[in-house]
């Protein structure tokens, strides 16, 4: 459940006090209340003002946040993976859905064939440079909220194909990854463990909307040199 964080080079150049606070307080962004209250006449009527991050605070913040906790619990228990296997790991990914390792127990079963209806992209197998573009397109076609699980060593780091001329050295070079499952290939139990870690991640998010948009992972344009 490693959230891999790469700071944006431009903002990383000048760490502000707020940034330092963010690091010290373990990632919770400080809420900065602007000086002049009541910019928005409608909000001012309720004694509220705009949230610096674009949302609301005060009374209105409570309701969507509490709802989000429930929604996140719901999402954590209904993670539909995309029916997309790249290579060897795909067989073990299918094996997790079979009689012995039945991932359906956790509500992760209907492997949707269309990315529009999937929640989790399990990148199962070696990602080649030729496949990188289509895979990123699949990822972008999935609706938010969505998560990515990198399954197998080839996917997490290039693995045994580290020196190959046509293999992307880790899928996190082209898209953000939420959970890494090592192994070549991981046993089905390993993938189920990774998916349960993902469930924890989803539950822990506690309705922080910002995580939908910015995962703290810098997006790398795949069309260039993806290695």
């Amino acid at each position: 459940m490693a959230l891999k964080t790469t700071p944006d080079p431009q903002t990383a150049a000048e760490p502000s006090m707020a940034e330092a606070d963010r690091v010290l307080t373990g990632g919770t962004p400080p809420i900065v209340i602007p000086d002049q209250a009541g910019d928005d006449p409608i909000l001012a009527e309720f004694g509220m003002e705009e949230h610096p991050q674009g949302g609301f605070h005060g009374l209105l913040e409570v309701i969507p946040t509490r709802a989000d906790i429930v929604l996140d619990l719901i999402r954590a228990n209904s993670l539909w993976p995309l029916l997309s296997g790249l290579s060897c790991c795909a067989i073990e990914m299918m094996s997790t859905a079979t009689s012995k390792n039945d991932i359906d127990r956790f509500g992760m079963f209907p492997f949707r064939a269309s990315p529009r209806q999937a929640d989790v992209l399990i990148v199962a197998g070696t990602l080649t440079t030729k496949m990188a573009g289509p895979l990123v397109r699949l990822w972008e076609q999935m609706p938010e909220p969505k998560w990515c699980v990198a399954m197998g060593t080839c996917t997490t780091s290039g693995g045994r194909f580290k020196r190959s001329y046509s293999v992307v050295q880790g899928v996190d070079r082209v898209m953000p990854v939420d959970v890494y499952v090592p192994g070549c290939p991981p046993r089905p139990e390993g993938l189920i463990y990774g998916m349960m870690k993902l469930q924890e991640l989803v539950k822990q998010r506690r309705g922080e909307w910002s995580t939908y948009v910015d995962r703290g992972v810098q997006r790398i344009d795949w069309e260039g040199d993806v290695r």
Partner: peptide, 26 residues
């Protein structure tokens, strides 16, 4: 043409006839 003998893998890419440019799709 990757399987020619003068196409070297990334560790030796500096010696390759691809001249250090990594052989990627572009």
């Amino acid at each position: 043409f990757p399987q020619r003998k003068d196409f070297l893998l990334p560790d030796d890419a500096a010696d390759s006839s691809a001249a250090g440019v990594r052989p990627l799709e572009r």
